[in-house]
Simulated scan of single mutants.
Amino acid sequence: MSKSHDILCIGSVLWDVIGRAPVHMRQGSDVAGRITRLPGGVAMNIAMTLARFGLKASLLTAIGRDTQGDELIQACEELGMDTTHVYRSEDLPTDRYMAVEGANGLIAAIADAHSLEAAGSKILRALNDGTLGSDDAPYEGFIALDGNLTQRLLEKIAVSPAFAKADLRVAPASPGKAERLLPFLVHDRATLYVNLEEAGLLCQKEFTSSEEAAKGLLDRGARRALVTDGGNSASDATPDGIITQIPPSVMVTRVTGAGDTFMAAHIASENDGANREDSLNRALRAAATYVSGGSPK
């Protein structure tokens, strides 16, 4: 069983196509701005931030054997990711994400992760065939898991013996996919990373603060939950208590990937042995640096 990495990142790795304008926008706005194409996806965003903190991620995902897929694999490797175990499909195209952002935040986004969904359990082969783990020899260490996987596959992962010894860090890809994480709400090895809206969807209740939402998730059976609420607050809840902090105030220049940056920075901090207070603080500072246009460190 080989392990030449610090963490597994399982989920979406795709091309982000993002249009950004420096003005406030609304439905129907037609303004000048910049359009970029960058490696993205929740698993990829987490892996990239982890790399900035000196941790190497191995990706478990699906990427097509098309031109865009070849370019994406090359980009991943240049950014320090291990792509050895990526499932390369002959007949599925490389996934994409498209978003429009204005000075007032995210206006709209569409995530096309259909190839990842269609690949299903094929992306987990290395965790089942003994390469990285198996039912008899479960993978030990951090696993970052995102909600772009299908509900059925997430349910299988939640009860799979191959994941029984992993430190699972789980995040929805978006509020629209938050309820896919229900199998991990009562999981004894999972830590949930959600925003205020996603917490409300998981609890079927409206919350007004990150602290209230974090407590709500604990009440529903969560082992541990981290809840963010933009620039307002963030809370880390365990049965030992709830810690709440306010993020640094910064000028927001981008929002796509902020939650993934927060999660990755928090994992990196705990990997370094930091306590809960320091880990939350480091994650908030990293996310603030990211949304202001800088590179988290």
Rank of each mutant, 00 (worst) to 15 (best):
S12R: 05
W15T: 02
R20A: 09
V23G: 12
A32G: 14
I35A: 01
R37H: 00
P39V: 06
G40P: 02
N45R: 08
N45D: 01
G54Y: 13
A57K: 12
L60K: 10
A62W: 01
G69A: 02
D70S: 13
L72Y: 05
D82N: 15
T84Q: 15
G105W: 06
L116T: 08
L116H: 11
N128R: 13
G130E: 00
Y139M: 07
F142Y: 11
I143D: 00
G147R: 06
F163A: 07
A166Q: 13
L168V: 05
R169P: 03
R169M: 07
R169S: 04
S174L: 08
P175G: 01
R180T: 01
L181Q: 07
L182P: 05
A190N: 04
A190Q: 04
A190S: 03
V194H: 00
E197G: 02
E198P: 00
L202N: 04
K205V: 04
L217Q: 08
R220T: 01
G230P: 09
S233V: 00
S235V: 07
S235A: 15
S235H: 13
S235E: 14
T238R: 08
T238H: 06
I242R: 07
Q245V: 05
P248R: 08
V250S: 02
A274T: 07
S279L: 06
A283G: 09
A287N: 03
A288S: 14
G293D: 05
